[in-house]
């Protein structure tokens, strides 16, 4: 374990990280329901082979992955592994969940064009609602992240994360 990078969290920070964790506990129910509805859409005869379905599933799996990664990072932050790279890691996971939630909403509307039968339409509507609940959760989680890092630090880590996946400027 890279002990040279280790950071110490004070009691206040630990409390705020626990609040973040508790919010992800609430989110778990939303995420599990969303993924189950998406499995239902995937096995549904009218939508299983619809255009956009493969990418819609891929985006959904990345939402689940982003939440899980965030929780994994919080678990690791309560150990001696807590460090600057781990702080960046947790912000990356949150941004993953957010980014792919945007993609999922776009792709769902592409899939929806294929669906005409009432049961399928009802399912699409339920997924739309579940994606909105997911957005609300991610917003609430972002507030917890702000409280934990402090707004400026959170934004600066987000900027670093974005820079690390952008072509550097010349010179």
């Amino acid at each position: 374990m890279p002990s040279s990078q280790s950071m110490i969290m004070n009691a206040d920070e630990q409390d705020r990280l626990m609040e973040w964790w508790n919010k992800t506990e609430e989110a778990k129910i939303v995420v599990q329901r969303l993924m189950s509805l998406i499995t239902e859409l995937r096995v549904h005869p009218e939508s299983s082979h619809a255009d956009g379905m493969v990418l819609f599933y891929r985006a959904a799996s990345e939402i689940s992955y982003g939440y899980a990664g965030m929780r994994g990072c919080i678990r690791r932050s309560f150990t001696s592994e807590y460090s600057e790279p781990l702080r960046k890691n947790i912000v990356m996971c949150h941004s993953f969940a957010h980014k792919y939630s945007v993609d999922a909403k776009i792709l769902l509307e592409r899939v929806a064009k294929h669906v005409t039968e009432p049961n399928g339409l009802q399912l699409i509507n339920r997924i739309r609602d579940a994606l909105m609940e997911n957005d609300a959760m991610l917003n609430e989680i972002a507030k917890k992240a702000n409280a934990f890092f402090g707004k400026e630090t959170f934004q600066s880590i987000q900027t670093k994360v974005n820079q690390s996946i952008t072509l550097p400027s010349i010179g």
Binding site: Q32, M35, T39
Partner: peptide
């Protein structure tokens, strides 16, 4: 990464389905 995400999805989806059924939803 994709495989790890597939596994994460599978756990969440299966647990979500079980929860829906337990709440009395007919699927």
């Amino acid at each position: 990464h994709a495989t790890v995400a597939d596994i994460g999805y599978g756990f969440d989806a299966a647990r979500g389905t079980i929860k829906r059924l337990r709440q009395g939803e007919s699927i």
